[in-house]
């Protein structure tokens, strides 16, 4: 199982992250100083690393404004990065303090983007049967972010727990 994270390249505006940040201020929370948003895709199926790289670079990432990371994931949700940053500028991010909130659909909830991705992977010439899940990832920057605060942001803003689940790490 692979997870692909699509990130905005440095120097490009992360409009969605900025919008979320202003909504966070709207909640009266001022501890968070910056938000970066990236999209997550989990691809399950009998595909090779080469194929997943093609999917990541040709399909899921905008070459001009975005870069990607590929992780291998096991059933427990543990993951390790197995790709290089497709844009090395991205490594700079890792030196900052941040927390992450991931948001995923609960089982049984229709994930419309996943159906489109499956169609597009076929168009790419990869004929294998795959399953796709999409998620949202928010990097929240700030000094020390309390778990309760992150829970508030997740519940009030980023995830509707009726149909979505979230993970903080």
């Amino acid at each position: 199982m692979f997870e692909i994270e699509v990130l905005t390249k440095e120097g490009f505006k992360n409009s969605r992250g900025e919008h979320v940040l202003s909504d966070i201020y709207g909640l009266g929370i001022e501890d968070i100083t910056n938000v970066e948003y990236s999209t997550l895709y989990v691809v399950e199926g009998d595909i090779s690393f080469g194929e997943i790289e093609t999917i990541a670079s040709e399909l899921l990432t905008d070459k001009v404004a975005e870069s990607y990371l590929i992780r291998r994931r096991d059933a427990e949700g543990n993951s390790e990065v197995i790709s290089k940053f497709s844009d090395t500028k991205e490594t700079g991010r890792l030196n900052h303090n941040f927390s992450v909130i991931e948001v995923w659909y609960k089982k049984g909830v229709t994930d419309t983007v996943s159906e489109s991705v499956i169609k597009a992977v076929k168009d790419l010439g990869i004929a294998k049967k795959i399953k796709v899940k999409t998620g949202h990832k928010y990097h929240l920057y700030g000094k020390i972010l309390q778990k309760t605060l992150l829970n508030t942001v997740a519940k009030k803003l980023l995830a509707n727990t009726l149909i979505q689940k979230y993970k903080i790490h």
Partner: peptide
């Protein structure tokens, strides 16, 4: 009822 909630697919 939780299942009463649906997500649409306009396409």
């Amino acid at each position: 009822a939780v299942s009463a909630v649906q997500i649409g697919n306009p396409i």
